[in-house]
Design a protein around this nucleic acid. Structure first.
Ligand code: SF4
Ligand code: SF4
Lengths: 160, 160
DNA sequence: ATTTGCTCCGATAGTTTTGGTCGGAGACTT
DNA sequence: AAGTCTCCGACCAAAACTATCGGAGCAAAT
């Protein structure tokens, strides 16, 4: 739990790659095909294909099925594609708990009536969502990404 | 993905309940047994039992196996039990990606070498972790929890 | 016009995770 | 000694995730 799925990971990888091609330092705007991305990152081709299809269906990328020169390209500028959008495209609407976006009656959680942790959790949920929404593909676009782990980034003072 | 498991949910529910009993407004310090919590919240008894065992093993609660009057009680004060601790107790160490706490070589992710999204993602991971660590059981302890959804809490300005 | 290389879509296996169950051993109270 | 309780490990079923396959359609190159 609380972990990205492989598909989400692949999606981000692919988007980052496409963004680099189109908007990177050595910008070379062109469409890229599935196989290219897959081989570049050692991702199973067919699975990546389906991920890209899903992204296309959600308007995040555009498919150019133009025979041999077909492929995909970003649908908008990198900064207009937030991580939250990507994640929601890949794995339905995201929610920490079963209860958080329930429209009709209590279809899901049996203990909703007796539940005292719902509000605090939905608050956390909201925070995470905003965090994910505040980052875009552009933020992944740093060339020469250092592989060191950020050991202690400034804690952005969560109010107690 | 990016969702609490039932077990984690049950754990929080149970901890909240125990905290209420011991530290709530009508404080009535006593040990509570598994069945009581389960019936109170309509949780399968045996599953909750295992969750509680796990929590006990991680020192978050104390087991008092004293025959008929046995049960569990919090091991520390509610404010000293953070959500991150609970989650890690229930589902191993939490990490958004497969790559984030790898000690030895690249056991997991095959595309780690070509990966340009690792650093940004680990930053997000870190933010979420700190968020989870900044909330404790005490924060779940509000009596009469309002069921309204918090619409817009302060976004803690992620530095660009 | 035919071939080629691509996207697209649905269906389908294999595997892992999760949710939930069972039964026995140990410990304390009565 | 009997009865309840926790404890612990093993077990099972269902769902989700990962990955694979096969075929249809389309546009450019030949
Ligand atoms: S137990 Fe509470 S927080 Fe968890 S899913 Fe049910 S209503 Fe939501
Ligand atoms: S693709 Fe990159 S971010 Fe994802 S698990 Fe692998 S190394 Fe980590």
């Amino acid at each position: 739990m609380l972990k990205f799925s492989k598909k989400a990971d692949y999606a981000l990888l692919a988007l980052q790659y496409m963004a680099t091609v189109q908007y990177g330092i050595e910008a070379n705007p062109r469409v890229v095909n599935t196989k290219e991305i897959a081989e570049e990152h050692h991702i199973p081709v067919e699975l990546l294909a389906k991920v890209l299809q899903t992204l296309a269906k959600h308007q995040l990328i555009e498919s150019h099925h133009n025979g041999p020169k077909g492929g995909y390209a970003l649908g908008r500028e990198p900064k207009d594609i937030t991580l939250a959008q990507v994640l929601e495209a890949i794995e339905g609407p995201l929610g920490l708990t079963d209860c958080c976006h329930e429209k009709d009656g209590q279809s899901q959680c049996e203990q909703m009536n007796r539940c005292n942790i719902r509000t605090p959790l939905s608050r956390i949920q909201e925070s995470i969502f905003q965090l994910l929404n505040s980052m875009s593909i552009e933020d992944l676009l740093v060339e020469d990404t250092p592989l060191v782990i950020v050991e202690s980034l400034k804690l952005q003072g969560v109010p107690s």
